[in-house]
Write a protein that binds this DNA or RNA. Sequence first.
DNA 1: CTCCTTCTGTAACACTGTTCCACACAAGGG
DNA 2: CCCTTGTGTGGAACAGTGTTACAGAAGGAG
Lengths: 214, 214
Amino acid sequence: MTSLKTPPAGSEEPTGQRLVAAARELLLRDGVSGVTMRKVATMAGVTPTSVYWHFGSREALLDQVLTALIEELPEPRARGRSPRKRMLELARELRAQVAATQPVQALALELGRAAELSFPTQVALAREVAASGLRGDDAAMVVRAILFTVGGFILLTDNFEQRVPGSETTQELWHSLGGGAVDAGLQRAMEQGVDTDVLFAFTLDKLLDGLLPD
Amino acid sequence: MTSLKTPPAGSEEPTGQRLVAAARELLLRDGVSGVTMRKVATMAGVTPTSVYWHFGSREALLDQVLTALIEELPEPRARGRSPRKRMLELARELRAQVAATQPVQALALELGRAAELSFPTQVALAREVAASGLRGDDAAMVVRAILFTVGGFILLTDNFEQRVPGSETTQELWHSLGGGAVDAGLQRAMEQGVDTDVLFAFTLDKLLDGLLPD
DNA sequence: CTCCTTCTGTAACACTGTTCCACACAAGGG
DNA sequence: CCCTTGTGTGGAACAGTGTTACAGAAGGAG
């Protein structure tokens, strides 16, 4: 059933595995739109027809690639002395991981499987929320508020960074705004760039202030 | 210079304007990927070549469409008795507007002009932050924290709603999680669906608690 | 009239995902 | 042994995408 025929000369692995490996390499190198059926097939020494015989569609192929990549992601580790510090650390880790595995995230988004990527962090976060004394629905709201804030922040900064050249940034818009509309000091501050790392830490810190009143 | 030739029979408007109108109609009806050069051209009674003569590229055409659409967006109105209530109202309005003008948002995102869409709300928000007593860099951090939270929330829920059928939702993942990993009551709560409206209001409320301590 | 600019249509190019069809090859049954 | 069946494969094509080279038509200016 598995190998009725002798494997094609030039490679030990069966065609299916070679196709997944090729698609994976293309994904990490050229991004999700760079994974082309003809490129994948050529890289595996085969024609596009074979890809369709083995997987049925481009989406099914990418789905297998994503599954393999997800399994390799490291487990989140909650470090810190208090639940609150461990939550901050988990959020920071998730953000760093997303930044480091950009094409994987883009693929998960396209396949509608983004939830799986954050789930381990989600569980670890839930454990810390429970450790801080919250239970049931209240705890769930807190977990979700943190998750949505972190996830949203990641998506947003992502979109801001892959800005199209020539389009106006928020800072430029603030600069071109006439005087007197808002407080002058505030406007001047808005015209400067943002350090998203600092803003991320600040926002999460203040959110936790509101969520975990001691 | 403007119209050397008699306008084509069957329409008073010049070709350029008809093309923008056609692209706009296609965008609002079929989404950003539904705006095809051949469809736009056919709808305007012309061939794709003319589109390229007038605009140079698909991106330039869509850019003009977006500019026109942005100008029609209503100005944000800050309602409420306190600065804090007006901030919440502005955030709610922005979220509602984004939900109501989805294809416009998608287009702005693709063209890297998302900043322009939120900018009026941004200014109104800054005014309220200033009204609540904050100044300079501190005020800017607060404005940005709110903006990034709201914007991120919108992007995230957007991605969650256009989920691919067959892929696992977060709730299903929580359901398939073995017992004992986290508090049972918390897990049960996470298995239920989220009302994103309620979560949005809750998150923003708690964030403001942390940002605006009285 | 000729020249020149403006604008248009035809046809093509390079690319995408996908499908149809024929062909090779190994296994098994009569 | 032959013959059918199932497993893979390659070649060629289809329908679609954005984009471009090229040949014109139409009107104003000299």
